[in-house]
Simulated scan of single mutants.
Amino acid sequence: MDPTPADVPLRVAVVIGSTREGRIGDAVGRWFVTLAERRADVELEVVDLVDHVFPARYATTPETAGFAGLVGRADGFVIVTPEYNRSFPASLKQAIDHAYDEWRAKPVGFVSYGYRFAGLHAVEHLRSVFVELHAVTMHTAVHVDLRLGDVDADPPPNAGRLACEAEAMLDQLVWWGLALREARAARPYVN
């Protein structure tokens, strides 16, 4: 018997949004991926923006086409973002803008980090960007407050709360991801 769409794990791209030198986004991303890999219903691919080169002006290049292809193959996304000046980094906006239709009718979850507000403002700005791209953002997000300590600590500060947030967000992402994957397979998305 051929597997139905619900039997196939959801292909989730975990996008590491910061490219700054000295960033901790890769550590936050590793923490999240380690947690998410325990699930059988997701297949994760880490997409670290530090590994991608986007032109200063919007243009289709082999690199941008490759990035759009990664986005297109994913069934859903988890965006790992810092909060810079009450928003998200320019590197992430540039990457988002180099794919367009590829984001449509797919779920997006967030893992944010920062001091004091733990990336909450960055996530709120990203929600409006992804709504404009016709993506569905998850209600629950993971917010890592760096004032409480290093996410590389074993266990990280507030590990229980963060794990609960991550599980709830992934539950929502998988539900929406499977529903939207089935819907996209049944009929083309309308603009």
Rank of each mutant, 00 (worst) to 15 (best):
T61E: 05
P62H: 09
E63Q: 12
E63H: 02
E63M: 01
G66R: 15
A68G: 10
L70N: 11
V71K: 01
D75V: 10
G76K: 04
V80S: 10
P82G: 05
P82L: 02
E83S: 06
Y84W: 15
N85D: 12
N85T: 11
A90P: 09
A90Y: 11
K93C: 02
Q94R: 13
Q94S: 12
Q94N: 14
I96M: 04
I96A: 03
D97V: 02
Y100V: 05
D101M: 11
E102S: 02
W103D: 01
P107R: 01
V108G: 07
G109W: 07
F110W: 09
V111S: 03
S112N: 04
Y113T: 11
Y113C: 09
G114W: 08
Y115T: 15
L120G: 08
H121P: 12
A122Y: 02
A122F: 01
A122R: 01
V123P: 12
E124C: 01
R127C: 03
R127K: 12
V129K: 03
F130L: 03
F130N: 04
E132I: 00
H134K: 04
A135T: 13
H139T: 14
V142I: 10
H143M: 12
D145N: 14
D145F: 00
L146E: 15
L146C: 14
D150L: 10
D150Q: 12
V151W: 05
D152M: 11
A153R: 14
A153M: 10
D154A: 15
D154M: 13
P156Y: 06
P156E: 03
N158T: 08
G160W: 00
R161H: 00
L162S: 05
